[in-house]
């Protein structure tokens, strides 16, 4: 079971890495969400997957009778989920604000805080044409051929 979960964690991390390397802010956030889920699953797997009694102490004993499942990974994951939820909610609000302020979700086009590129324009694709800024809500869907 641990091996299967380890492979799942690996696949999730690979997907997350792919998404985070994108220029689209929303994809990056989705990547981070997947990455934090991968981390949670990893803690779950690291705590050993066992089939045992719940870790409850009977009323007349000081310690649980017999083998019991490890409750700590779940406590850790619960904490991490709550924190990750808060951070992701904040990041979503911030990206929405960024989109409203800058009318783009292309992180390469966000140069408000730093000096502009020397030629005052975003980087160009390999064929020398300018990569289109992806503007949501503007006319037409973003074109992809220039980016290839």
């Amino acid at each position: 079971m641990e091996n299967v979960l380890a492979i799942v964690v690996g696949i999730l991390v690979a997907c997350a890495t792919f998404l985070i390397l994108s220029r689209d802010l929303i994809r990056i956030l989705l990547g981070i969400a997947i990455l934090s889920n991968a981390a949670n699953l990893l803690i779950f797997t690291a705590g050993r997957v066992t089939r045992d009694a719940p870790p409850l102490v009977p009323g007349d004993l000081e310690v649980p009778a017999g083998a019991y499942a490890n409750p700590l990974p779940q406590a850790l994951i619960l904490t991490a989920i709550v924190i990750g939820f808060g951070l992701l909610a904040f990041a979503l609000v911030l990206s929405y604000r960024a989109y409203v302020a800058m009318r783009t979700v292309d992180v390469d086009a966000m140069r408000e805080a730093e000096p502009p590129y020397p030629d005052q324009s975003p980087p160009t694709g390999e064929d020398g044409r300018q990569t289109p800024l992806r503007r949501r809500g503007a006319a037409g869907t973003p074109t992809r051929e220039a980016a290839q």
């Binding site: 808060g86 909610a89 609000v93 929405y96 604000r97 409203v100």
Partner: peptide, 13 residues
Amino acid sequence: GAIVTIALEMEEA
């Protein structure tokens, strides 16, 4: 408090 703040903020935006 936290959830309501975020939700109302989003709704007003």
